[in-house]
Lab assay of single mutants.
Amino acid sequence: VTTYKLVINGKTLKGETTTKAVDAETSEKAFKQYANDNGVDGVWTYDDATKTFTVTEMV
């Protein structure tokens, strides 16, 4: 189990959250659901070296 981080650069929501998951794909699903639940829709990137997802909304 690995800890993954999500950085949110939204128009109205900014911040970070973490989750523990067995792999990046599992954490990505959880993070995308979290973003969707909070009305964040944007461009996703992933940095495997830091286990960090970033979602950026276009303004």
Score class of each variant (00 low, 15 high):
1 V>S: 10
1 V>L: 15
1 V>M: 15
1 V>Q: 13
1 V>P: 10
1 V>E: 14
2 T>P: 08
2 T>N: 12
2 T>C: 13
2 T>S: 11
2 T>W: 11
3 T>Y: 07
3 T>R: 07
3 T>F: 07
3 T>K: 08
3 T>Q: 11
3 T>N: 07
3 T>M: 10
4 Y>K: 04
4 Y>N: 03
4 Y>T: 04
4 Y>W: 07
4 Y>P: 04
5 K>Q: 05
5 K>V: 10
5 K>D: 03
6 L>I: 03
7 V>W: 04
7 V>S: 03
7 V>G: 00
7 V>R: 06
8 I>N: 00
8 I>L: 08
8 I>G: 00
8 I>Q: 00
8 I>S: 00
8 I>P: 00
8 I>C: 06
9 N>R: 10
9 N>Y: 13
9 N>W: 12
9 N>K: 10
9 N>V: 13
10 G>V: 12
10 G>D: 02
10 G>C: 14
10 G>N: 05
10 G>W: 06
10 G>F: 11
11 K>V: 14
11 K>G: 08
11 K>H: 12
11 K>D: 07
12 T>R: 11
12 T>Q: 10
12 T>H: 14
12 T>D: 09
12 T>P: 03
12 T>A: 09
12 T>S: 11
12 T>L: 11
13 L>R: 08
13 L>G: 08
13 L>E: 06
13 L>K: 09
13 L>H: 11
13 L>I: 13
14 K>M: 08
14 K>P: 06
14 K>R: 11
15 G>K: 12
15 G>Y: 15
15 G>T: 14
15 G>Q: 11
15 G>M: 15
16 E>K: 07
16 E>M: 13
16 E>Q: 10
16 E>A: 09
17 T>V: 15
17 T>R: 13
17 T>H: 14
18 T>K: 06
18 T>C: 14
18 T>H: 10
18 T>S: 12
19 T>C: 15
19 T>D: 05
19 T>Q: 09
19 T>W: 11
19 T>Y: 15
19 T>L: 15
20 K>R: 13
20 K>G: 07
21 A>W: 04
21 A>G: 07
21 A>K: 03
21 A>V: 03
21 A>D: 04
21 A>P: 02
21 A>E: 05
21 A>H: 04
22 V>M: 12
22 V>C: 12
22 V>I: 13
22 V>W: 11
22 V>Y: 12
22 V>Q: 10
23 D>R: 04
23 D>E: 03
23 D>N: 11
24 A>L: 11
24 A>T: 10
24 A>P: 10
24 A>W: 15
24 A>S: 09
24 A>C: 14
24 A>H: 11
25 E>K: 13
25 E>V: 11
25 E>I: 12
26 T>A: 13
26 T>N: 07
26 T>V: 07
27 S>A: 15
27 S>G: 12
27 S>F: 03
27 S>P: 04
27 S>Y: 03
28 E>V: 06
28 E>R: 12
28 E>W: 15
29 K>R: 12
29 K>E: 08
29 K>V: 09
30 A>C: 13
30 A>N: 08
30 A>I: 15
30 A>F: 15
31 F>W: 02
31 F>T: 01
31 F>M: 03
31 F>E: 00
31 F>I: 02
31 F>N: 01
31 F>H: 00
32 K>L: 08
32 K>R: 15
32 K>C: 05
32 K>D: 01
32 K>A: 05
33 Q>K: 14
33 Q>R: 10
33 Q>E: 10
33 Q>A: 11
33 Q>C: 06
33 Q>D: 08
33 Q>V: 08
34 Y>D: 02
34 Y>P: 00
34 Y>C: 05
34 Y>S: 01
34 Y>K: 02
34 Y>R: 01
34 Y>G: 01
35 A>R: 01
35 A>N: 03
35 A>T: 07
35 A>Q: 01
36 N>R: 15
36 N>Q: 14
36 N>W: 14
36 N>C: 14
36 N>F: 15
36 N>T: 14
36 N>G: 09
36 N>K: 15
37 D>M: 11
37 D>R: 08
37 D>K: 10
38 N>E: 07
38 N>R: 14
39 G>I: 03
39 G>S: 06
39 G>Q: 08
39 G>E: 05
39 G>Y: 05
39 G>C: 08
39 G>N: 09
40 V>K: 01
40 V>M: 05
40 V>C: 04
40 V>R: 01
41 D>V: 14
41 D>L: 11
41 D>T: 14
41 D>C: 12
41 D>F: 15
41 D>A: 11
41 D>W: 12
41 D>I: 14
42 G>L: 03
42 G>I: 02
42 G>A: 01
42 G>Y: 03
42 G>V: 02
43 V>F: 11
43 V>W: 10
43 V>S: 07
44 W>I: 02
44 W>Y: 01
44 W>A: 01
45 T>Q: 08
45 T>P: 00
45 T>M: 08
45 T>G: 05
45 T>K: 07
45 T>S: 12
46 Y>Q: 00
46 Y>L: 01
46 Y>R: 00
47 D>I: 03
47 D>E: 06
47 D>K: 02
47 D>R: 02
48 D>N: 08
48 D>Q: 09
48 D>V: 09
48 D>M: 07
48 D>W: 06
49 A>T: 12
49 A>I: 11
49 A>R: 10
49 A>W: 08
49 A>Q: 11
49 A>M: 10
50 T>M: 05
50 T>I: 05
50 T>H: 05
50 T>R: 05
51 K>E: 03
51 K>I: 02
51 K>V: 02
51 K>F: 09
52 T>G: 01
52 T>C: 03
52 T>D: 00
52 T>W: 01
52 T>M: 04
53 F>H: 03
53 F>D: 00
53 F>W: 13
53 F>T: 00
54 T>R: 05
54 T>A: 03
54 T>H: 06
54 T>M: 07
54 T>G: 02
55 V>R: 01
55 V>D: 01
56 T>H: 06
56 T>A: 05
57 E>W: 06
57 E>D: 08
57 E>F: 06
57 E>G: 04
57 E>L: 08
57 E>R: 03
57 E>P: 07
58 M>G: 10
58 M>E: 13
58 M>D: 13
58 M>K: 11
58 M>N: 10
58 M>W: 12
59 V>K: 10
59 V>H: 12
59 V>Y: 12
59 V>D: 14
